[in-house]
Protein backbone atom coordinates (compact mmCIF):
# COMPACT_ATOMS: atom_id res chain seq x y z
CA UNK A 1 0.00 0.00 0.00
CA UNK A 2 1.22 3.44 -0.87
CA UNK A 3 2.17 5.37 2.21
CA UNK A 4 -0.25 8.12 3.11
CA UNK A 5 1.25 11.55 2.74
CA UNK A 6 0.45 14.09 5.42
CA UNK A 7 -1.43 11.71 7.65
CA UNK A 8 -3.58 13.37 10.27
CA UNK A 9 -2.67 10.71 12.81
CA UNK A 10 0.24 10.48 15.20
CA UNK A 11 3.15 8.41 13.91
CA UNK A 12 2.22 5.56 16.26
CA UNK A 13 -1.34 5.39 15.06
CA UNK A 14 -0.33 5.83 11.44
CA UNK A 15 2.07 2.93 11.75
CA UNK A 16 -0.61 0.85 13.41
CA UNK A 17 -2.97 1.64 10.56
CA UNK A 18 -0.36 0.74 7.98
CA UNK A 19 -0.16 -2.64 9.66
CA UNK A 20 -3.89 -3.07 10.18
CA UNK A 21 -4.47 -2.72 6.48
CA UNK A 22 -2.24 -5.72 5.85
CA UNK A 23 -3.33 -8.31 8.38
CA UNK A 24 -6.73 -9.28 6.99
CA UNK A 25 -7.50 -11.33 3.92
CA UNK A 26 -9.36 -8.22 2.75
CA UNK A 27 -8.06 -4.81 3.61
CA UNK A 28 -11.53 -3.47 4.19
CA UNK A 29 -11.79 -5.56 7.34
CA UNK A 30 -9.65 -2.94 9.04
CA UNK A 31 -12.38 -0.36 8.68
CA UNK A 32 -14.27 -0.67 11.96
CA UNK A 33 -11.21 -0.96 14.19
CA UNK A 34 -9.52 1.88 12.35
CA UNK A 35 -12.51 4.12 12.87
CA UNK A 36 -12.56 3.28 16.55
CA UNK A 37 -8.85 3.84 17.05
CA UNK A 38 -9.02 7.06 15.04
CA UNK A 39 -11.82 8.23 17.27
CA UNK A 40 -9.77 7.37 20.33
CA UNK A 41 -7.07 9.65 19.04
CA UNK A 42 -8.99 12.50 17.45
CA UNK A 43 -11.95 12.46 19.82
CA UNK A 44 -14.48 11.75 17.12
CA UNK A 45 -14.68 10.63 13.53
CA UNK A 46 -14.06 13.90 11.76
CA UNK A 47 -14.41 14.50 8.03
CA UNK A 48 -10.63 14.36 7.81
CA UNK A 49 -10.65 10.96 9.51
CA UNK A 50 -13.24 9.71 7.03
CA UNK A 51 -11.21 11.01 4.12
CA UNK A 52 -7.96 9.47 5.25
CA UNK A 53 -9.40 6.12 6.18
CA UNK A 54 -11.24 5.96 2.86
CA UNK A 55 -7.95 6.59 1.14
CA UNK A 56 -6.11 4.04 3.22
CA UNK A 57 -8.60 1.31 2.48
CA UNK A 58 -9.48 2.28 -1.11
CA UNK A 59 -13.06 2.96 -0.18
CA UNK A 60 -15.47 5.69 -1.14
CA UNK A 61 -16.08 8.21 1.60
CA UNK A 62 -19.75 7.43 1.32
CA UNK A 63 -18.96 3.82 2.09
CA UNK A 64 -17.03 4.81 5.17
CA UNK A 65 -19.90 6.99 6.33
CA UNK A 66 -22.43 4.28 5.71
CA UNK A 67 -20.44 1.94 7.90
CA UNK A 68 -19.52 4.34 10.63
CA UNK A 69 -23.08 5.55 11.08
CA UNK A 70 -24.14 1.99 11.81
CA UNK A 71 -22.11 1.62 14.98
CA UNK A 72 -23.24 3.32 18.17
CA UNK A 73 -19.80 3.85 19.60
CA UNK A 74 -18.65 5.91 16.65
CA UNK A 75 -19.55 9.57 16.73
CA UNK A 76 -19.12 12.37 14.24
CA UNK A 77 -19.19 15.12 16.85
CA UNK A 78 -16.64 15.70 19.59
CA UNK A 79 -17.49 14.43 23.06
CA UNK A 80 -16.02 15.24 26.43
CA UNK A 81 -12.57 14.04 27.34
CA UNK A 82 -14.25 11.51 29.59
CA UNK A 83 -17.32 10.05 28.08
CA UNK A 84 -19.54 8.71 30.85
CA UNK A 85 -21.73 5.91 29.57
CA UNK A 86 -24.39 4.75 31.96
CA UNK A 87 -26.19 1.51 31.21
CA UNK A 88 -29.91 1.51 31.86
CA UNK A 89 -30.68 -1.82 30.28
CA UNK A 90 -32.72 -4.35 32.18
CA UNK A 91 -30.23 -5.72 34.69
CA UNK A 92 -28.89 -2.29 35.45
CA UNK A 93 -32.32 -0.74 35.50
CA UNK A 94 -33.38 -3.22 38.13
CA UNK A 95 -30.51 -2.13 40.30
CA UNK A 96 -30.74 1.60 39.83
CA UNK A 97 -29.36 2.34 36.39
CA UNK A 98 -31.86 5.08 35.70
CA UNK A 99 -31.29 6.67 39.07
CA UNK A 100 -27.60 6.62 38.30
CA UNK A 101 -28.14 8.25 34.95
CA UNK A 102 -30.31 10.92 36.52
CA UNK A 103 -27.73 11.48 39.16
CA UNK A 104 -25.06 12.02 36.52
CA UNK A 105 -27.29 14.39 34.61
CA UNK A 106 -27.77 16.31 37.76
CA UNK A 107 -24.22 16.47 39.00
CA UNK A 108 -22.70 17.09 35.59
CA UNK A 109 -25.49 19.42 34.56
CA UNK A 110 -25.79 17.87 31.15
CA UNK A 111 -28.15 15.53 29.32
CA UNK A 112 -27.80 12.56 27.06
CA UNK A 113 -25.04 13.11 24.50
CA UNK A 114 -24.13 16.47 25.93
CA UNK A 115 -20.77 17.75 27.07
CA UNK A 116 -19.86 19.88 30.08
CA UNK A 117 -18.78 23.41 29.18
CA UNK A 118 -15.19 22.67 30.22
CA UNK A 119 -15.17 19.79 27.77
CA UNK A 120 -14.18 17.36 30.49
CA UNK A 121 -17.23 15.13 30.64
CA UNK A 122 -19.91 14.03 28.31
CA UNK A 123 -22.78 11.79 29.22
CA UNK A 124 -24.49 9.03 27.36
CA UNK A 125 -27.19 6.57 28.21
CA UNK A 126 -26.11 3.29 26.70
CA UNK A 127 -27.46 -0.16 26.11
CA UNK A 128 -26.17 -3.22 27.94
CA UNK A 129 -22.39 -3.13 28.26
CA UNK A 130 -21.95 -6.72 29.40
CA UNK A 131 -21.67 -6.09 33.11
CA UNK A 132 -25.16 -7.20 34.09
CA UNK A 133 -24.10 -9.25 37.08
CA UNK A 134 -22.25 -6.31 38.53
CA UNK A 135 -25.03 -3.84 37.92
CA UNK A 136 -25.55 -1.01 37.81
CA UNK A 137 -22.59 -0.42 35.61
CA UNK A 138 -21.08 2.41 33.66
CA UNK A 139 -18.11 2.95 31.42
CA UNK A 140 -15.97 6.04 31.37
CA UNK A 141 -14.32 5.85 28.00
CA UNK A 142 -13.23 2.21 28.07
CA UNK A 143 -13.01 1.79 31.87
CA UNK A 144 -15.70 -0.28 33.52
CA UNK A 145 -17.17 0.76 36.86
CA UNK A 146 -19.39 -1.79 38.52
CA UNK A 147 -21.88 -2.06 41.29
CA UNK A 148 -22.37 1.67 41.36
CA UNK A 149 -24.37 3.93 43.64
CA UNK A 150 -24.72 7.67 43.22
CA UNK A 151 -22.06 8.14 45.88
CA UNK A 152 -19.68 5.72 44.17
CA UNK A 153 -20.36 7.46 40.90
CA UNK A 154 -19.35 10.79 42.41
CA UNK A 155 -16.09 9.22 43.52
CA UNK A 156 -15.54 7.84 40.03
CA UNK A 157 -16.12 11.23 38.46
CA UNK A 158 -13.83 12.83 41.01
CA UNK A 159 -11.07 10.41 40.17
CA UNK A 160 -11.18 11.59 36.56
CA UNK A 161 -11.26 15.21 37.59
CA UNK A 162 -8.26 14.55 39.78
CA UNK A 163 -6.28 13.28 36.78
CA UNK A 164 -6.68 16.68 35.21
CA UNK A 165 -5.41 18.73 38.12
CA UNK A 166 -2.31 16.63 38.45
Amino acid sequence: MAAIQNTIFTPGTAARFDKLATIYPLKRSALVPMLLYAQDEVGYVSDAVVAEIAQRLDLLELDVRSVLSYYSMLRTQPAGKYNVQVCTNISCMLRGGFELLDHCKHTLGIGHKETTPDGLFSLEEVECIGACCWAPAAQVNYDFHDDLTPAKMDAVLDSYRARETK
Partner: peptide, 11 residues
Protein backbone atom coordinates in the same frame (compact mmCIF):
# COMPACT_ATOMS: atom_id res chain seq x y z
CA UNK B 1 -19.81 -9.76 20.77
CA UNK B 2 -21.74 -10.57 23.95
CA UNK B 3 -24.50 -7.99 23.81
CA UNK B 4 -27.67 -9.74 24.90
CA UNK B 5 -28.89 -7.82 27.95
CA UNK B 6 -28.46 -9.93 31.04
CA UNK B 7 -25.35 -11.63 29.68
CA UNK B 8 -21.80 -11.04 30.88
CA UNK B 9 -20.24 -14.49 30.97
CA UNK B 10 -17.86 -14.14 28.01
CA UNK B 11 -16.61 -11.03 29.75
Amino acid sequence: DESEPGTCKDH
